[in-house]
Amino acid sequence: EVPFKVVAQFPYKSDYEDDLNFEKDQEIIVTSVEDAEWYFGEYQDSNGDVIEGIFPKSFVAVQG
């Protein structure tokens, strides 16, 4: 069931425009499960802007 919160276990950096880049310990709200390997989610950056994109499930852990 979406949405749910995950926390980055590792930093994720990608050159693909659709990917969500983040640092370790970033909290991310997952709004869609793309497939067995990928989530789609969002978070607010330090400027208060909402950043969204896809990212690999293996880089995050589900909270709770």
Results as ranks from 00 to 15, higher is better:
17 E>I: 13
1 E>M: 13
43 Y>K: 00
59 F>I: 09
45 D>C: 09
5 K>R: 12
10 F>C: 15
32 S>G: 12
40 F>C: 08
32 S>C: 14
62 V>N: 08
35 D>R: 07
25 D>V: 01
9 Q>F: 07
42 E>K: 11
11 P>K: 08
23 E>F: 06
39 Y>G: 00
2 V>I: 11
5 K>T: 13
10 F>H: 12
44 Q>P: 06
27 E>H: 07
58 S>D: 11
35 D>S: 13
39 Y>L: 05
18 D>G: 15
1 E>N: 12
39 Y>T: 02
16 Y>P: 05
55 F>M: 00
52 E>F: 14
32 S>W: 09
35 D>I: 07
6 V>G: 01
62 V>K: 11
37 E>K: 09
18 D>I: 12
60 V>F: 02
37 E>I: 09
58 S>W: 11
23 E>Q: 07
12 Y>S: 00
5 K>V: 13
57 K>N: 09
10 F>D: 04
2 V>C: 12
32 S>L: 08
59 F>M: 11
54 I>G: 11
44 Q>H: 10
9 Q>E: 06
42 E>D: 01
56 P>N: 05
14 S>W: 02
51 I>C: 12
25 D>P: 02
41 G>N: 00
5 K>F: 08
29 I>R: 07
2 V>T: 10
55 F>G: 01
15 D>P: 13
24 K>C: 07
48 G>C: 07
48 G>V: 00
12 Y>F: 09
10 F>S: 08
38 W>K: 06
9 Q>M: 15
9 Q>V: 14
59 F>C: 14
25 D>G: 15
17 E>F: 10
18 D>R: 15
10 F>W: 11
54 I>Y: 15
20 L>Y: 01
4 F>Y: 03
49 D>V: 14
36 A>G: 13
44 Q>G: 04
57 K>L: 07
20 L>A: 02
6 V>C: 07
18 D>H: 14
7 V>I: 13
29 I>E: 04
11 P>Q: 09
5 K>L: 11
54 I>T: 14
24 K>T: 07
60 V>Y: 03
8 A>V: 02
56 P>Y: 05
62 V>S: 08
52 E>K: 15
62 V>Q: 10
24 K>I: 08
44 Q>E: 13
35 D>T: 08
54 I>F: 15
51 I>H: 15
11 P>T: 11
53 G>K: 00
43 Y>D: 00
18 D>F: 14
58 S>L: 08
36 A>P: 11
47 N>F: 09
38 W>I: 05
18 D>Q: 14
8 A>Y: 03
49 D>W: 09
57 K>G: 07
12 Y>D: 02
36 A>S: 13
30 V>M: 02
55 F>V: 00
62 V>W: 09
19 D>Q: 15
46 S>R: 12
37 E>A: 08
48 G>D: 04
24 K>L: 07
11 P>R: 08
19 D>I: 09
58 S>Q: 09
24 K>N: 04
13 K>C: 12
50 V>F: 08
3 P>K: 06
46 S>G: 10
1 E>D: 11
10 F>M: 12
23 E>M: 07
28 I>L: 06
54 I>Q: 13
35 D>L: 09
51 I>V: 14
62 V>R: 12
3 P>F: 05
37 E>C: 14
9 Q>G: 05
27 E>F: 06
47 N>Q: 08
30 V>T: 01
14 S>H: 01
15 D>F: 10
38 W>A: 03
50 V>P: 06
45 D>K: 09
16 Y>K: 15
58 S>F: 09
4 F>E: 01
41 G>E: 00
17 E>S: 11
7 V>C: 08
44 Q>Y: 10
2 V>G: 04
62 V>G: 07
26 Q>W: 06
33 V>G: 04
51 I>R: 14
51 I>L: 13
49 D>G: 08
10 F>R: 14
63 Q>H: 11
49 D>S: 11
28 I>H: 00
3 P>S: 04
34 E>L: 15
43 Y>A: 02
7 V>A: 02
8 A>P: 01
40 F>P: 00
26 Q>R: 03
50 V>C: 13
28 I>F: 03
44 Q>T: 14
42 E>Y: 15
43 Y>M: 05
16 Y>W: 10
19 D>W: 06
1 E>G: 13
14 S>M: 02
4 F>K: 02
40 F>G: 05
3 P>R: 06
15 D>T: 12
29 I>V: 11
61 A>T: 13
23 E>S: 08
40 F>E: 02
4 F>I: 04
58 S>E: 10
46 S>P: 10
34 E>T: 13
56 P>T: 03
60 V>P: 01
40 F>Y: 13
45 D>R: 06
21 N>L: 04
